[in-house]
Design a protein around this nucleic acid. Structure first.
Lengths: 267, 267
DNA sequence: AAACCAAGTTTCAAATAATGAGACTAGTTT
DNA sequence: AAACTAGTCTCATTATTTGAAACTTGGTTT
């Protein structure tokens, strides 16, 4: 969804990979076919190739395909080199201890929010279950603050790719409403999720920017309307700002990849 | 290393992806070129395509490439659907608590050991940093017990792909020595790492097999020669066997992908 | 400031690989 | 045993990849 297609054969093969992943369970060739735009033999060859390459795993007993182990290995490298996680970890820990609420670290990937790290209030870390998860950008705190600080061209592209599905009565459901909100966020320097994604769930979010203003990612503190309110969350703004600044400082040295290509095709 | 090449354009592109990941740090185009068999424009186009697709991330300030965020998202799905991790987690937790030593869960990927989960004695879980890591199969406990229970054809292919690099004075450095060891392991049903990979580090490992004998993965308990010895580790065999059996039972229901294709090219 | 150099990028005809309609096979149901 | 279904294979056509060479850009030296 929102992914650039038409990068030749490689792009098509990766599209198939995404489709398999999107099923969320092992999937049969036929199911994939009925859902795919590719003709049977073409899809078949892609699936074959990806399986040979370890990007898909094949279960011969059930004749099903699922995303392969090679991805886990590659993601390990991505995690280390292309995400804020290694640099941010100690600061996230400190933030989590200080606020005693759920903390998220996210980055943008193809117009979606990709959760990179998470600390559950109190509970021990239950990682991979959350890291790698994606969510909508237009109705989450982290998504909105990241979009707010993108350059105009990139922002337009990202906004255009939002689905504006209505999750709750507070969900912003048009590009115009979103643009207005992003403008507010730019003014304040931070943003909220006002039960826009899930009823009863609110959060305050802070962008992580380079000092040239490039978006690196975002942090958020999440709570529920039963425990606090927006004013209560706003009290966390100073510590969030501080944490973000620390992450920025360290990230500058290590230096991180950008979220746009020269080609303007990818976010 | 050990990966099947020659799956057309897609295979070549993924080879490039592996090369970038192998650098272990953001890498410039030129560095990649000097290390690659592809001619300049060909490599250039691959890198371009992969970047457009989010499989690589480009840092315009430093002009470097690193594995992209899309991999993190895809790996999340792989983790959930193609690994033993979700099923094994509670049992690994219990095992870790019971033995108070470092516990590993691993699977085979392309003749290498892929660590899927880990519990550090006492310390809090620090996930992704370990999950996705790869290691040699011929000189680790988990690697050897998995190889020992592969079917003959697959085992031959895997053994052939081992590097037999000598890490310590105890490293098995020939296919013959390894085959003898695997035979012993098959007899006992479990295996050890006798400081073969790192001096002072020893472990006892147990394969996780389906009841038809197919290899699903392996478990190990690791310690140091300063804290215990092989006889001490052997005491953990019953609980390891028990844990493996529990994981097998649950995995059967959920059912997992295999580690060989119909094509006999991929492990 | 001109010449040089290195790194990255683009071009385009030739070579190669991807494509997909259709045929085939194996397994299952009527 | 015929009809059906899901998966796999073939091969002429078509479209894409390929890479030598030329070009551009930014930085460094003379």
């Amino acid at each position: 969804m929102g992914r650039v297609t038409g990068d030749g054969t490689v792009g098509k093969a990766l599209e198939v990979l995404d489709q398999v992943a999107a099923f969320g369970r092992p999937v049969r060739f036929g199911e994939l076919l009925s859902q795919s735009d590719f003709p049977k033999p073409t899809l078949y060859r892609f699936v074959q190739t990806l399986t040979n390459q370890g990007m898909l795993a094949y279960n011969p007993e059930r004749q099903t395909y699922s995303p392969g182990l090679r991805l886990v290995r590659l993601a390990h490298a991505a995690w280390d080199q292309s995400t804020l996680a290694p640099v941010a970890r100690p600061h996230i820990d400190a933030l989590s201890n200080a606020v005693g609420e759920t903390v998220h670290l996210a980055q943008l990937d193809a117009a979606q929010v990709l959760y990179i790290d998470k600390r559950n209030a109190g509970k021990p870390v239950e990682m991979y279950s959350q890291a790698g998860k994606v969510g909508p950008a237009y109705c989450t705190g982290v998504g909105k603050v990241m979009m707010a600080f993108l350059d105009e061209v990139t922002a337009d592209r990202v906004i255009e790719q939002q689905s504006f599905h209505v999750f709750t009565e507070h969900t912003l459901d048009t590009a115009e409403a979103l643009r207005a909100e992003l403008s507010d966020i730019r003014q304040n320097g931070y943003g909220f999720d006002r039960e826009e994604h899930e009823p009863g769930i609110i959060c305050v979010a802070m962008p992580i920017l380079t000092d040239t203003g490039r978006v690196l990612g975002a942090l958020s503190v999440t709570s529920t309307t039963s425990r606090t309110n927006l004013a209560g969350l706003e009290a966390y703004v100073p510590i969030l700002r501080d944490t973000a600044a620390k992450i920025t400082r360290e990230a500058q040295n290590w230096s991180f990849p950008d979220y746009h290509t020269k080609e303007a095709t990818r976010i």
